[in-house]
Design a protein around this nucleic acid. Structure first.
Length: 324
DNA sequence: ATGGTTTTTACTGCGTC
DNA sequence: GACGCGGTAAAAACCAT
């Protein structure tokens, strides 16, 4: 019998882990924005600044035993490489050796050899059909990772996967990176789901540059004919408000501020995020809740200057609609 | 590529705690 | 004296052409 064995795949294994590690460093604590650290012992992701536990029950994929010398290791070790979700089949697919030898190193008879040829052929067929599948799986993994880093709900992830799948089917991938398209798909999905995240936020969790995300997104959106209206500034308000611990009242006023601004066409050409940030700031002023411009600019990733410019306009607009 | 618009950067002055 | 806020000028980024 030819030996069939599970793939160990050491190289891709370690490199995957490394990239995952790097991405993790970019994640921030949702509470205080501090860096996250991994507590291996407890299997938790913890904020280094405020101690908030972000993720519990992480699976330890290492061995469950301890070995003190090589012999013991040999004895206790039962399985191959740890599984990883970064591979579509978790690294567990079958590889058939190309040598026509059996498990003892003896050559095979001609009948056996033919049989092995057939097996190889079929196994290879399944695997190449999987190459698309594998590409997809990796992208979906990325999408999932970024979505959770951005606190996006499941339906957005699904929309993003659908978009990605379509892009894949229409052969939009060549010349573009998987990560780029994945990020672009997520960006599009978030906007379609009316829970938009700004390009800056996407850039923070993605492995690709902002430019590439924007470019890829535009391309994919155009090719797939995705209909995406410019983001509604109001859709950013709840998130900003809650990140700043503002009252519902303030949130409500921010919306109404934006409503009247939109009614006057004040918003066209301006960045929706800036508008939303300014509205939140202005509303907080109106309800006497203390928020500084820099705090708002922080959560909205918008410059203070922009907030200043916008919120004057917003207040003027509001007066204009109330008076006449 | 270009030009017009918006946003950002950097700096300054003012008032308050 | 640090902080929050406002304004300005110039640079950079963005977008349609």
């Amino acid at each position: 019998m030819t030996d069939t064995r599970t793939r160990t795949n050491d190289e891709t294994e370690t490199s995957d882990e490394r990239t995952e590690e790097r991405a993790d460093e970019r994640q921030r604590c949702p509470e205080c924005g501090g860096p996250l650290v991994t507590d291996e012992e407890r299997g938790e992701r913890v904020c280094a600044d405020c101690g908030l536990v972000v993720e519990e029950d992480a699976v330890d994929r290492g061995p469950e035993w301890r070995a003190f010398d090589a012999a013991e290791r040999e004895q206790k070790s039962r399985v191959g490489a740890p599984t990883t979700t970064m591979m579509h089949d978790k690294g567990l697919s079958t590889n058939i050796d190309w040598r026509d030898k059996d498990a003892y190193g003896n050559s095979l008879g001609s009948r056996q050899r033919e049989k092995m040829q057939r097996l190889r052929k079929w196994n290879e067929r399944f695997r190449t059909r999987d190459s698309k599948e594998r590409n997809l799986k990796q992208a979906l993994g990325e999408i999932d990772r970024m979505a959770s880093a951005l606190g996006l709900p499941d339906n957005v992830r699904e929309m993003a996967s659908v978009i990605y799948r379509r892009a894949l089917d229409e052969n939009l991938l060549p010349g573009r990176s998987i990560e780029g398209v994945a990020t672009g798909a997520l960006y599009a999905a978030a906007r379609q789901a009316r829970t938009p995240r700004s390009l800056d936020e996407l850039t923070a969790v993605s492995r690709v540059e902002k430019d590439e995300i924007a470019r890829t997104y535009r391309y994919v959106a155009r090719e797939l004919g995705l209909e995406i209206e410019p983001a509604d500034p109001k859709s950013y308000v709840p998130r900003f408000a809650s990140e700043l611990d503002l009252s519902d009242e303030t949130e409500r006023r921010a919306r109404s501020l934006l409503d009247s601004a939109i009614k006057q066409g004040l918003h066209s050409g301006k960045s929706p995020v800036g508008l939303a940030a300014a509205a939140v700031y202005a509303a907080a002023l109106l309800t006497n809740e203390k928020v500084t411009q820099s705090e708002v600019s922080e959560v909205a990733s918008i410059s203070e200057v922009t907030i200043r410019n916008r919120y004057h306009e917003l207040l003027d607009a509001e007066e204009g609609t109330v008076a006449p």
